[in-house]
Design a protein around this nucleic acid. Structure first.
Length: 487
DNA sequence: ATGTGC
């Protein structure tokens, strides 16, 4: 494929940032790539073939890759794709398979020294695992929660006991500190799902899921240049944070399955298509497009509530371990797989993010009230055994529709990792057997070998690219002390 | 990432 590159951001005065940006011209259009030389050089031809297919979707206005980009189904993970709402197409492939997948961070009143004892970390991991099911087969819990209310209204559909401060306006932090606590949808679309899907999804409320999903206990290290923002967010050095990475579980899967065939049918009728039969898209205002958007919103609602219930269970486990003095507040809940409308200077855009995190700068009007002055926290997970990051958007992010990376980004497939990496190497990366061991819930690391850090790019390089490109800055680094993984 | 079917 013929590829031309330039590296001038919007032709403006971003010269200091140009080492981390390239506009790559492909036959079907341009993809804007944010990455340093080494990460850019490591991007395979397949990543650009996928871009060339995605750029053939009618009326697309902008497409970009973050430095952690890697091949996915139909569309790469690390994609931002933008249309004007009026003439938009919506693509289930660009949203991706785990609709609403994202991060949540809670701040605790614990300090790193409270978790210095490896036995205590093990005890805590066990207590959390008891309340946050990490296996697929779980019994029905939360019998007081109505799933039809949850998928229709998000956090607003939960009984008050799960959102204790939601109804006292002066302290309504848990709702305002969530990217969106409820997506509005036409509930008629929900009647399309059979009973077995409702039952399975209800059983899965508050469960972690497999793959890269996790709960981690981390110690916060504030970036010197960000002390003021860190203070306003309530962070302190050595503070223990709880980071949760999970998504919409089987509910989102059912949405993809049902809508996928409807969208494929609409594509045949409309005569649309690309070289990749797995790249699905339909006009936003068509029947198939509308059905997908409404049901995608139901999966976003499920995902937000799922992370919220995982946090609720973790709070219970920590209270059991540390007593009633334990406190845990919400820092933020932020997705990286979704599509929705965003306003830009009076214009309405339809923005898809797949493995891309929105990071708004200070003062941007779309920030929630609690973060209007600082910009909202952008929550970026590292791979197992490596640090995660709390970041904040920079004004330069406007050039990329405020999208930054969503993590380290896979560098080799799950199968290739299992062939290449030895359990012993994974064990060393987790410092197993040492006093500073990162405690993992699994008795054997073998079951999660495909999640070893060797399967991922270097998160520090990814972060350096995002910062270097002027999209965001680091507020704090979060070092892992314990991890709970599903399978 | 996921449930389902081989």
């Amino acid at each position: 494929m013929l590829i031309n590159q330039t590296n001038q951001i919007n032709g403006s005065d971003h010269s200091a940032h140009e080492a981390y940006y390239r506009r790559v011209s492909l036959p079907a259009g341009d993809v804007h790539v944010y990455a340093g030389d080494e990460l850019f050089g490591a991007m395979g031809a397949k990543v650009f073939e996928m871009a060339n297919n995605n750029l053939q979707i009618p009326n697309i206005r902008y497409m970009s890759y973050t430095p952690d980009v890697h091949v996915g189904v139909g569309t790469c993970i690390g994609t931002t794709a933008v249309w004007e709402t009026e003439s938009a197409f919506v693509s289930p492939s660009i949203v991706g398979s785990d609709i609403g997948c994202g991060m949540r961070v809670h701040l605790t009143n614990l300090k790193a020294e409270n978790l210095r004892d490896v036995k205590l970390r093990r005890q805590l991991v066990k207590a959390i695992e008891k309340r946050v099911p990490t296996e697929n087969q779980t019994r029905g819990r939360f019998s007081d929660i109505r799933l039809e209310r949850v998928v229709a209204k998000g956090l607003h559909g939960l009984p008050g006991k799960y959102v204790p401060d939601a109804y006292t306006p002066r302290q309504a932090t848990s709702l305002t500190r969530v990217e969106s606590s409820g997506f509005l949808l036409d509930e008629d679309y929900l009647s399309r799902f059979p009973d077995r899907i409702w039952h399975r999804a209800h059983r899965q409320l508050g469960t972690l899921g497999g793959g890269n999903h996790f709960v981690e206990l981390q110690a916060i290290e504030i970036e010197e240049s960000s002390r003021e923002i860190a203070k306003q967010w309530g962070l302190f050095d050595g503070q223990i944070a709880v980071m949760i990475h999970s998504g919409s579980r089987a509910w989102g899967g059912a949405v993809n399955q049902y809508c996928g065939s409807e969208v494929a049918k609409a594509m045949r009728q409309g005569g649309w298509g690309t070289a990749d039969p797995k790249l699905l898209f339909a006009p936003l205002h068509s029947e198939a497009g509308k059905a997908y958007v409404h049901l995608m919103y139901s999966a976003l609602n499920f995902a937000v509530v799922n992370r919220h219930l995982i946090a609720y269970a973790i709070r219970e486990a920590c209270k059991e371990t540390f007593g009633a003095k334990f406190e845990m507040s919400t820092l933020y809940d932020l997705m990286h797989n979704y599509a929705w409308e965003e306003k830009r200077e009076g214009e309405s855009l339809f923005v898809h993010r797949k493995g891309a995190t929105r990071a708004l700068p200070p003062g941007h009007p779309d920030n929630p009230k609690a973060y209007a002055a600082t910009g909202h926290p952008a929550l970026i997970p590292g791979s197992m055994g490596t640090a995660s990051y709390l970041m904040v958007g920079a004004p330069g992010g406007a050039a990329n529709h405020y999208s930054i990376c969503h993590g380290a980004g896979r560098v080799r497939s799950r199968n290739a990792t299992k062939q290449l990496v030895k359990v012993e190497e994974f064990s060393q990366a987790m410092r197993i057997g040492r006093e500073d061991e990162i405690v993992v819930n699994h008795r054997s690391l073998e079951a999660i070998l495909d999640e070893s850090p060797q399967a991922y790019k270097d998160i520090d390089q990814i972060i350096a690219s995002v910062v270097g490109a002027g999209l965001a800055s680091v507020v704090a680094k979060c070092r892992p002390l314990a991890a709970i993984k599903g399978v």
